[in-house]
Computed example of a mutant assay.
Amino acid sequence: MTRRHSALLALLGAAVLGGCASHPPLRHADHVDLGRYMGTWHVISHVPYFAEKGDVASADIYALKPDGTIAVTYRYRKRIDGPDKTWNGKAWLPDPADPAHWKVQLVWPLRSDYVIVDLAADYRSVLVGLPSRKLMWIMARDRQLPEAEYQRLLGVAKAEGFPVDEVRKVPQRAEDIGQPGFEP
């Protein structure tokens, strides 16, 4: 299966999962300054799914475009010392008054929701998830996140109904490989 087919299946799965919400509405971060949110977010941990399985040193990179849409680049490696690979997509705000809720499209015509659930006041860490609560990501501006902040975000995820027992850390550095709590 090609990477493009994997991306298509991943987005289809995310779109389907995002549409199966039987929970109360997902909390949205109180205030999101889109300009400040743009840039690189390293994936610290997530609920693993097949499209990101085995990815290391992964990050989402967001850039606000003049037309108001957001360029989305998912950067990853298959080995810590391997070359960078990317997927490119786009995002937009279905309601400009709610910058914590995005629609993301990596493969046309499939779309998925992206909700900024919790954003640190200093814009150094974030919890993002799907309304279905099936998938979530904890991301940070740096490749490491202080343990207290990581635990705080896991607590928010648990309170919002995400399956925190399934969360695994994503290796960002060679020394992360094989450590407890990290994806194999």
Rank of each mutant, 00 (worst) to 15 (best):
G82R: 06
V156A: 04
D84Y: 14
A91I: 06
A140K: 04
P94F: 09
A57F: 12
L110Y: 15
Y62P: 04
Y76V: 02
G161W: 06
R143L: 08
R133Y: 07
Y76P: 03
D55A: 13
S6C: 07
W137N: 05
S112W: 00
G181L: 02
L119I: 03
K65I: 00
I61V: 14
R143T: 15
T86Y: 07
D84C: 06
A159F: 00
G82Q: 07
V126W: 06
V115Y: 04
P163Q: 03
P25I: 01
V126S: 11
L110S: 11
G19I: 00
A121L: 06
A29T: 00
E183P: 00
V104D: 07
W92L: 06
A174V: 08
A121G: 01
D165R: 08
G68K: 09
W41T: 00
V107R: 15
L130Q: 13
K169E: 05
H5P: 00
K103L: 10
V72E: 01
E166R: 15
V156M: 05
R168W: 06
K78M: 12
A21V: 07
R3V: 12
H46L: 15
K103W: 08
I70N: 03
K85S: 14
T86L: 09
A57H: 13
G68Y: 14
R36E: 12
F182M: 08
I116S: 08
E52I: 12
L154F: 03
H42T: 06
A159R: 14
V43G: 01
D176P: 11
F182C: 07
L12Q: 13
R4V: 11
K85G: 05
K53N: 07
A14Q: 13
G35R: 14
D98A: 09
A97R: 13
S6F: 05
Y123P: 02
R36G: 09
L8R: 14
P24L: 01
H42R: 13
V126K: 02
E166V: 01
A15L: 01
S22W: 13
K78G: 05
L17I: 00
A10K: 03
V167H: 04
G35D: 14
R133G: 03
A57Q: 12
P24Q: 00
F50P: 04
K158L: 10
